[in-house]
Design a protein around this nucleic acid. Structure first.
Lengths: 223, 223, 223, 223
DNA sequence: AATGAATGAGTGTTCATTCAT
DNA sequence: TATGAATGAACACTCATTCAT
């Protein structure tokens, strides 16, 4: 059959395909996030996007397709945004902290869509569910790389990096998943700061602690 | 009108009500977990439970009711199990570790239902959603109490207990949420052990480290 | 099959059959009248009658049976009540007026059930519908006899007695059918009085007018 | 929220809305009349109308809506037809007789729907029931106006016009309600003629009788 | 004779998908 | 390309009826 990651369209002009899909996915993300996959109808999406029902079926094969591209879009945002923010940052510890901050900020921006990831992945066809999970794993690896660099450089003592990455990811996701319990107590920046204190600092080596202090001073100057 | 946590039944015999409800919830938990709330029909549940469709409506007002009691059952398992396991355990650090282990073990046992909590809470009526969230908060407080006792006793250095509890909870939930990524690499016991290393040990004080070592020796003897 | 007017029962004791049926019909009449045939469930009737669902099926074959006996009961009330009131009344004009008054009074007492007659007769099986219509015709004939006696005696000029009987019946039924429009403007007694002015007096002969005046005076004395 | 008399449609083209609704109401009127509201399923209506089930829900919110518009259609026919027939008729007595004839003719044409009015009004939501009753009152007023004009002009002696109007209305409705007892004995025209003899002529004044005779002669000439 | 738990066919309604224009 | 009216399979829920106790 078709490969799991590709969605075919009846329309040939690739420029138009891109535009229309973006338009539809924007609407779908909003509605799926607010009312869930099953609470959102194709007719809702069409109205929200300002187009006709039939047109959606020119750009997506079925509703599953729309959900899939919606979730894929969230993952792609992670995969684009985090490396973009890391570009130019050299110091391993700084890279780790910046990556965590970037992750949390994307979660904040796509809050509803992040929740959607937890709620609706199982609504997908099996092969696409796998595809989405692989995307998630790829994002984790971005953090894993940063974490390992810190360990190699001796800033962090050897820890179970595999599980610690998950804790960092869950910490970020929690900003969306447990928004009702967190947003009243922390600003986003404070939350990231607390995350570093909780999930990075305890594992710092002597060297790491010194490096961290320097980074803190530097940051304070540039602010 | 009705308080959110109570579900009425057309059947009067309380013994029968208890039995039938359990029978239905068992079936519903299985199916909701496998196929989600909307992917599961009342017909499915009836067939799985070995009863007729109509009978479900003698014990639950509607499908929402079935989901609600299913989720409530998960929460009640936490709230019963964890205190039961803690009974008789004295040392603050041991209580914390035992609580984490108990939490993970309940998650392991109700793995599908735990995932269901994340997927389907939003499908509930608003007041019941709140009710479920409060149940979750109550469970968190069980861990929070253990954690604070450790800090008061000087075994753990002062940390952001509110967030650390969330990390411990997420760590436990991850055993269900990310089962596909974890169950190949860890047994449940190892996973708990790693959790302690990752989310408890780093915050130990000098005193805490000594106490922990003693506990470890004691445990090795009793095993 | 069974003859249309007979309803069989699984219970043999005829005394019990009579009592239970009355108990059930009382409940059914109330509920059918308030919520209509389809808006009333057998479970409602059982609760209202203070018995179990199963018991109803010991005394009636099905729901249709219950409706049938309910409607039959209304007709029988007419057929018993009107002759009872007429007994001993001699003068043809007085008999006509008394009959109309009795009819209206029964309608008033069985107001809801009378409306039910209009609403639900069609819900019956065909043969029973006919049976009910014949009962209605029988009641009409009671009035028809009174009316014809007045004409024969020269109190009323020859009129279309067949249609005038219908007008008298409709006038009585209107007290139930259009209650919302009539009960604010008239007491039951006034309504009957107006009915006589409207549907009897205009057809009086010279002789009839004299007789009517005498009757009026007589009645005033006895009041 | 929505005013009780308006029914919204998902379809925008007003021409189509009109056509489809008429098509559906025609089918519904037939079936509701034959089998009653609860005996008729949406599937039946769809098949009778030659369309799909879903389409009905594009033009009506629910089954209640279909019944409501069906009943409303009957009332509107009265309110349109009677004034139309009266247009150009000058003489008060002629107007009254023409109005009664028009009323009976509409009842004849919408016979089943008229019975439906009696059977199913209670199946409507409360606010709509009121709406329908008001429509009925409006139709009554058409007759009331004719009747009062006759009294003012001295053609009819003073009578209880409020109740006489009801008798005229019931007389017309009886053509539908008691069709089984009337249609074998009268043609529609004869029935109307008998109605005039029964419910108009007895109340004529001397002047009225003379006028009536002239009208009769005139009519015989034009026929 | 009496109970009420259990059944399951049948109903109103929704909504993904199609297709004539 | 784009529209939106039309379709009909599928679902939650009801309730007359049965039957074991």
């Amino acid at each position: 059959m078709t490969s799991p990651g590709v969605v075919e369209s009846a329309v040939t002009d690739p420029r138009l395909v891109g535009e229309r899909r973006q338009q539809i996915i924007r609407a779908a993300t909003k509605l799926f996030s607010e009312q869930g996959y099953y609470g959102t109808t194709i007719q809702h999406i069409a109205r929200e996007a300002g187009i006709s029902v039939g047109l959606i079926y020119q750009y997506f094969r079925d509703k599953d397709d729309v959900l899939f591209l919606t979730l894929k879009h969230v993952l792609e945002t992670y995969e684009n945004e985090i490396p973009a923010v890391l570009a130019g940052v050299e110091h391993p510890l700084e890279r780790l902290c910046v990556a965590l901050g970037a992750y949390c900020r994307v979660v904040d921006r796509l809050r509803d869509a992040t929740v959607l990831t937890y709620r609706s992945t199982k609504s997908l066809r099996a092969d696409r569910r796998t595809f989405i999970k692989e995307g998630e794993a790829r994002t984790n690896r971005l953090l894993e790389t940063c974490l390992r660099a810190c360990i190699s450089a001796g800033h962090l003592r050897p820890v179970n990096d595999y599980l610690l990455v998950y804790q960092l990811v869950l910490f970020s996701h929690a900003w969306a998943l447990k928004a009702w319990a967190l947003r009243d107590r922390y600003t986003l920046d404070d939350y990231v700061e607390e995350g570093i204190k909780l999930l990075v600092e305890p594992y710092l080596t002597e060297k790491g602690r010194a490096a961290m202090a320097r980074l803190r001073r530097k940051r304070r100057r540039t602010d």
